[in-house]
Design a protein around this nucleic acid. Structure first.
Lengths: 122, 122
DNA sequence: CAGCATCCTGCGTGATACTG
DNA sequence: CAGTATCACGCAGGATGCTG
């Protein structure tokens, strides 16, 4: 705890900041099975997104960059000519997967359909 | 692996939607110890928020309303004169606490201080 | 294929003032 | 005390078009 900061930052707040954006969590989840190319990630994100407008490169690019900066994923650029780039989880990213799993798990049980009010009765 | 659903909404997306907003997660966390009044929640949120501008009533009110609609918390209005309102976790909300705990836990280990790039090296 | 450059828009968040 | 009402603004996020 060599953190003599005036106001310790809340881990939850930091988390929210880190995964802010519609796709970050899903990207991490997608990468849990191994490295994926830019296009693969893009296609993968289309499934499961109801109305699903195509995710624009600008947005995806941004998310990937942010995730890279957060240290969750790693960008591997294979030489040149037809561009090929792979993204994969870093150690930190892998350690994060269980958390996403917990989120998915909970979401599966309490969200995704009827939910919202069902067991709020208590 | 009951995964036979057709146009299923992604649980992760649903989760993100549900906890969108800077304070929702922290509110839930705050309420894990028991019911709290509006003002208490408000004060509680100030601690830990670095630059921390006072959270405006408008925002807090909105978050609380959203959480109520999500079925995570419950609003209990004691009669009238001087207004007293308590918020507490519903069953669903309580079931959500462990998830937040996981998030906090992970955040404590990988965020909150230097982080960001430290072990991205791998 | 894997992006970047520009423009545009909605909404989340904050500031400020008022009320039952 | 526990909110609501208005105004204002930055930024996430989508649409299009271009490139090495």
């Amino acid at each position: 705890m060599a953190k003599a900061n005036p106001a310790r930052i809340c881990p939850v707040a930091a988390f929210q900041k880190m995964i802010s954006g519609k796709y970050k969590l899903r990207i991490v989840w997608d990468l849990k099975d191994g490295p994926r190319r830019y296009g693969e990630i893009r296609s993968g994100l289309l499934r499961g997104t109801e109305g699903s407008a195509e995710i624009t490169p600008r947005v995806l690019s941004r998310e990937l960059k942010a995730l890279t900066q957060s240290g969750l994923i790693d960008r591997k650029d294979f030489g040149e000519v037809p561009p090929k780039v792979e993204y994969r989880l870093t150690r930190k990213g892998k350690s994060f997967v269980p958390v996403v799993a917990a989120i998915r798990d909970w979401g599966d049980r309490h969200l995704t359909e009827t939910a919202t009010l069902v067991d709020a009765a208590e």
